[in-house]
Write a protein that binds this DNA or RNA. Structure first.
Length: 414
RNA sequence: GUGAUUGUAGCUCAGUUGGUUAGAGCGCCUGAUUGUGGUUCAGGAGGCCGCGGGUUCAAAUCCCGUCUUUCACCCCA
């Protein structure tokens, strides 16, 4: 709380115990599950050439235009900190030749976006995401969504909703934009200010405007899907059918808009009510990204760890549940016992025991209090008497019982 | 980028119309006869009142700036 000259940056926070226990659970469960699905971990640099993001996410998107940490380094090179994970991943895979066109990778990494912080939005935030490259195939998309659902389940998250839609093939973009514009034209004067601007810049944004008046108008006009080629709609249907076979329910929402340029065909979003205005905990879709000679097709998703954590908390899942517990606490009475206990602690720790002790000469009462506070299950007491006899007193903190035991036996049974 | 909002002890917060040594609860430390925790009781330590300016005899309190917190818009995970 103490604000100082050397405080951390706005929207960037330090993560420590107990909260960190939840982070570790999330990461551990993710790695386990990704292994089951045959995904390998990929760690890409935080910094990339600015062009990587411009080219893949899109030059005109808000993410690139107003949210990135972009700067020139000492050599005048234009760089940016990754605002999302797909671009860097595909930049890597695009350089892997044949192998990169049929890969399954996942990442757990920090992302950076220079926006004003608010609920569920940090300037440094963290995502766990996957990418599976390969030619468009509805089954691949369905499997990716299945993986995502399994992931949320593995974390114990309940109450999330999945919405799905399609952006159609690239060739559908123009007809969709034209079609929507034409349909909206008669209502132009009734749209909100933003939408009057958006109708030219990015019609799709009009579709998901939260303004009530705009929403009503949008309900009256045909959905974007109706301006797409038949094959594009069939592709979405195939994904939905495959999901149904796996027992995964989705809500089709033609108004779902995903802003990044690289998406084609299937797009989806997971929302959770716990979150407030930023209610998406995960988003994904099929894409096509040209960062090399050949465009890399693939499908993937990313989950926001911070947002998952707030959602988990409303499910009653807390960090404390994953806190390390129990262990042994050593109590030393006198300097000799203290020195000997240092040795004992080392031996116990070498055998994998969680073991703590006071390193200063404190009263027994103080040491016992600390042992209790640290949640020790067992306390080992050593004073001059025990030292002389080669024994220790072993106390069970739960029921308060204690007995004198041979030091060797204690180490052997640890 | 726009509009609100916050900052006082380790934590959660009081602090009257500007006025003397800035408070509480929890936590922490020490004790309640020699080497035994979680309960109780007694005592104690601990504060650049976010930071920098200004007004005033006098500022935690009023004014300006700045950083930060939280929230919304925009957009996204």
């Amino acid at each position: 709380m103490a604000a100082s000259e050397f405080q951390s940056l706005q929207g960037m926070s330090d993560i420590r115990a107990p909260e960190i226990y939840l982070w570790r659970m999330i990461e551990d469960e993710a790695r386990k599950l990704f292994n089951c699905y045959g995904y390998e971990e990929l760690r890409t640099p935080v910094l990339e050439k600015l062009s990587v993001f411009k080219r893949s996410i899109g030059d005109t998107t808000d993410v690139v235009q107003k949210e990135m940490y972009a700067f020139k380094d000492r050599g005048g090179r234009e760089l940016a900190m990754c605002p999302e994970g797909t671009a860097g991943t595909i930049r890597h895979l695009a350089g892997c030749g044949e192998e990169g066109l049929n890969a399954r990778v996942f990442y757990i990494a920090p992302m950076f976006r220079c926006e004003r912080p608010q609920a569920g939005r940090k300037r440094q935030f963290h995502q766990v995401g996957v990418e599976a490259t390969g030619e468009p195939n509805p089954l691949a998309d369905a499997e990716c969504i299945a993986l995502q659902q399994n992931l949320l389940e593995a974390w114990g998250l309940v109450g999330s909703k999945i919405q799905i839609s399609t952006r159609g093939a690239r060739s559908d973009r123009q007809p969709v934009a034209d079609g929507l514009r034409e349909a909206l034209q008669p209502h132009l004067n009734n749209l909100c200010e933003d939408c009057q601007r958006r109708i030219d810049e990015n019609v799709l944004r009009v579709i998901d405007c939260k303004n009530e008046g705009c929403a009503k108008i949008v309900d009256q006009i045909p959905s974007a899907l109706e301006f797409m080629a038949e094959e594009s709609r069939q592709y979405l249907d195939a994904v939905i059918q495959a999901l149904e076979k796996m027992g995964i329910e989705v809500e089709v929402n033609p108004k779902l808009v995903r802003g990044l340029d690289y998406y084609v065909h299937t797009v989806w979003e997971i929302t959770h009510d716990a979150l407030g205005a930023q209610n998406a905990i995960a988003g994904g879709g099929r894409y096509e990204i040209a960062l090399g000679k050949k465009a890399v097709p693939g499908v993937g998703f990313a989950v926001g760890i911070e947002r998952v954590i707030t959602s988990l908390e409303t499910c009653g899942i807390t960090a404390e549940q994953f806190a390390p517990k129990g262990g042994i606490w050593l109590i030393s009475l006198g300097e000799d016992a203290l020195a000997e206990n240092m040795k004992l602690a080392r031996q116990l720790r070498e055998k994998g025991n969680r073991c703590g002790m006071e390193l200063a000469d404190k009263s027994m009462k103080a040491q016992m209090r600390k042992a209790n506070r640290e949640g020790a299950e067992i306390v080992i007491i050593r004073g001059e008497d025990e030292l002389a006899k080669g024994t220790v007193v072993v106390k069970d903190m739960e029921d308060g019982s204690q007995e004198e035991m041979n030091l060797e036996d204690v180490i052997r049974n640890a």
